[in-house]
Design a protein around this nucleic acid. Structure first.
Lengths: 240, 240
DNA sequence: TGAATACCGAACGACCTGTTCAGTATCGCC
DNA sequence: GGCGATACTGAACAGGTCGTTCGGTATTCA
């Protein structure tokens, strides 16, 4: 968005820096790459770098911005309506895993070690936002106002997906993207439907867990208890 | 293990440094803490620091080693046998969430931002190892040799748990540890049992997803295809 | 008490960061 | 084609961190 950058020198410098970072990340891993090294590799002046990016991470994210568009393009074919029906083989995740497979060297370098935190967080939001959005719509349609649990369920789902994605990359893609999509859907859909009170087709239409009282009250009490406990710790203390 | 450190000066220095790091992490976050700051806060010589730890992260992990023992102690009451029966309210996760609640300030500081990568990884293994171990035993008992999928399921489960744990901490503990345990169990158990072919009490005893052929063969072919595609990228290339 | 050893403190070189500035090259556009 | 605008260069800057070294001092163990 806002993509009109006319001056060739600008695009050239940016691309040189991005390519240099990519190469160095693949060679040494993100954490081990220094701005200085990027400068040397790209053969770009120090001042120029800081004229374009605020630092190493900004450069990384600028690269990922292109990947984001790429993912978005691939995901465009999937309408929000499709997300709802978990019980059927939707293939929501297939594009994600396919994209990761295509760019697997970069994904591995960025997600594998601890450097991936920023990227993982970005991916998390990228998946969580539309999912949450649609789940809330679906719930409203079924007239079940359980918004708090939606966050929890979405978090669990996206965390599981990304965890499995990393595992899958490090295991050298033992299954196809299609298979990954199916096994994850198979793993998660039942429980998600149950937790959200959807899936009326299922045997158990969600009894329990917030059962007898409103969770808010018990929650507040619980927090107070914990805070009290934390303020007056034992002999050797907790949370020191 | 190997715990005999007799010289008081040693334990004093280590504790001073650990406490200083803890305090600074709570104040500024792990990434913003510098070795120099720890030295100043602990009032310990630079040389002394490097006599004990190889760097900032080693110091952090030495702190977490104590938490690890603490978690291990709490988890000790839960026999591996208990882990199997997902369908019942086991409470496997309750100690984890309780421990996180007790130490929530530290957990939040360490897990919240991107600094937590090392710690999350450590926690991941801590949870995954016994779970994997027991699931394999359970599967062997049911005579289903599906070892490859165990890794995937364990990864998904642990990732979901840790993701939700972070969410729960940042949402300021909206539920009790017991509730968290129950909702996660409710969310995950059905699908896990289904994916592993356990849960014979369920309606669907796991048909599908690895259906018609052995997954290994299709897998190998798939990998070869992907590798070929990656070596001969399009005009502007993928995974550049 | 005496020998072992952990600590101090100061200094070291090496590295990285982010900013500045005058001079030069390249660009977009009329 | 040419001109004004703009991006880049290159070098230097101060400020910071890191990990190591060393002789001298203090504490501890036995």
């Amino acid at each position: 968005m806002g993509g009109e950058r006319r001056d060739r020198r600008v695009v050239r410098s940016r691309r040189l820096l991005q390519d240099a970072l990519m190469a160095l990340v693949l060679e040494r891993g993100y954490a081990a790459v220094t701005v200085q090294a990027v400068l040397d590799r790209a053969d770009v002046g120090r001042a120029t770098f800081y004229a374009h990016f605020t630092g190493k991470e900004a450069l990384l994210l600028s690269i990922f911005e292109e990947l984001r568009e790429s993912i978005h393009r691939e995901l465009a074919g999937i309408t929000p309506a499709t997300v709802a029906r978990f019980g059927e083989g939707v293939g929501l995740l297939q594009p994600l895993f396919a994209h990761a497979a295509q760019h697997r060297r970069l994904y591995r370098a960025l997600l594998g070690s601890r450097d991936g935190a920023a990227l993982l967080h970005s991916l998390h939001e990228m998946l969580a936002a539309p999912l949450r959005e649609h789940l809330e719509a679906a719930i409203a349609h079924h007239r079940r106002p359980l918004t708090a649990q939606v966050d929890l369920v979405v978090t669990a789902y996206v965390s599981a997906v990304l965890g499995v994605l990393v595992w899958w990359l490090e295991a050298d893609l033992p299954y196809t993207p299609q298979e990954m999509d199916r096994v994850i859907e198979r793993l998660m859909s039942l429980g998600m439907g149950r937790a959200l009170g959807l899936h009326s087709d299922m045997g158990a239409p969600a009894p329990g867990w917030e059962g007898e009282e409103a969770p808010v009250d018990r929650t507040r009490d619980h927090n107070r208890e914990l805070r009290r406990a934390a303020r007056a710790p034992g002999p050797h203390g907790v949370d020191r």
